[in-house]
Simulated scan of single mutants.
Amino acid sequence: MAVLKKALLSTLGVISVVLFAILVATTSWQVITRQILHTPSTWSEEFAKICFVWLTFLGSAFLFGERGHIAVDFLARKLSEGGQRAMQLFVQLMILVFAGVGMTWGGILAAKVAWHQNLTALPFAIGWVYIVIPIAGVCIAIFALIDIVQVATGAQPAYLEIEDPDAPRNHQELEEAAQGEIGTPDKVATATDSKEVK
């Protein structure tokens, strides 16, 4: 399961980077043709919108797989270890249901309806815009299923540890931080003032 998750994350990451690069290039071309060449491109705006939609859904699936999505887990972290595990399993199960029914099944229906409607500036059907919804839904469902198994078996914690971005990350940074705190003039002055008060 870990291999599947890693492979899927790598694939989504590469696709997201490529889509972002295409989006930037297309938008830049649109600005150049409109502002510099004074002959606006007819296809670039619509193509940029499609890239943005695909990037949003696939990027969201990637972020979910990394467990980097926004979560208000203040109350859940107050529970016991078993309570945290039960809460996380419930949340992942709800996500699995939504990804399976709402995104995958609903996305397929939306793509079917729009498959015979053509875009105005591109030779594609609007269904190509909607087809990313079930693709992202399947990816999110796979990630949710893997998380359910790993949390249930204890292979990963229910809630990941919160990392302080200012905290030292290795022994050298820890020593540098300690030397910096001791040697700063403000802290030395404060220590001297406290001794004088005594």
Results as ranks from 00 to 15, higher is better:
Ala2Cys: 00
Leu4Tyr: 10
Lys5Gln: 12
Lys6Thr: 06
Ala7Tyr: 01
Leu9Ile: 10
Ser10Cys: 06
Leu12Val: 07
Val18Phe: 05
Phe20Arg: 01
Ile22Asp: 05
Thr26Pro: 07
Thr26Ile: 09
Ser28Phe: 13
Gln35Asp: 13
Leu37Pro: 04
His38Gly: 06
Thr39Cys: 00
Trp43Cys: 03
Ser44Phe: 01
Glu45Pro: 00
Lys49Leu: 09
Phe52Ile: 13
Val53Cys: 03
Val53Asn: 09
Phe57Ser: 00
Leu58Pro: 02
Phe62Ser: 01
Phe64Ala: 01
Phe64Gln: 04
Glu66Ile: 02
Ile70Pro: 00
Ile70Arg: 04
Ala71Trp: 06
Ala71Leu: 12
Asp73Trp: 06
Asp73Met: 04
Phe74Asn: 10
Ser80Gln: 01
Gly82His: 07
Gln84Leu: 10
Ala86Met: 05
Gln88Thr: 04
Leu89Ala: 07
Phe90Asn: 09
Gln92Met: 13
Leu93Cys: 07
Met94Tyr: 04
Leu96Ile: 08
Leu96Phe: 13
Ala99Glu: 04
Gly100Arg: 04
Met103Val: 09
Met103Ser: 02
Gly106His: 02
Gly107Trp: 02
Gly107Glu: 06
Ala111Glu: 10
Ala111Lys: 05
Val113Lys: 11
Trp115Ala: 08
Trp115Met: 10
His116Asn: 12
Asn118Cys: 03
Leu119Cys: 08
Ala125Gly: 15
Ala125Met: 12
Ile126Leu: 12
Ile126Gly: 00
Val129Tyr: 02
Gly137Thr: 11
Val138Asp: 02
Val138Arg: 04
Val138Met: 07
Cys139Tyr: 02
Cys139Trp: 01
Ala141Ile: 01
Ile142Trp: 05
Ile142Cys: 08
Ala144Lys: 05
Ile146His: 05
Ile148Ser: 09
Val149Trp: 10
Val149Gly: 08
Ala152Leu: 09
Ala152Asp: 03
Ala152Tyr: 10
Gly154Ser: 08
Gln156Met: 14
Gln156Ala: 12
Pro157Leu: 05
Glu161Lys: 09
Ile162Gln: 07
Ile162Phe: 04
Glu163Asp: 11
Glu163Ser: 13
Pro165Lys: 14
Pro165Asp: 15
Asp166Gln: 12
Asp166Arg: 11
Asp166Ala: 12
Gln172Ser: 14
Glu176Arg: 13
Glu176Tyr: 12
Glu176Ile: 11
Glu176Leu: 12
Ala178Lys: 10
Ala178Trp: 15
Gln179Asp: 14
Gly180Gln: 05
Gly180Asn: 12
Glu181Val: 14
Ile182Cys: 05
Pro185Trp: 09
Asp186Leu: 14
Lys187Tyr: 14
Val188Ala: 15
Ala191Gln: 14
Thr192Leu: 13
Thr192Lys: 10
Thr192Asp: 08
Thr192Trp: 09
Asp193Pro: 04
Asp193Val: 09
Ser194Arg: 15
Ser194Thr: 14
Ser194Ala: 15
Glu196Pro: 01
Val197His: 11
Val197Ile: 14
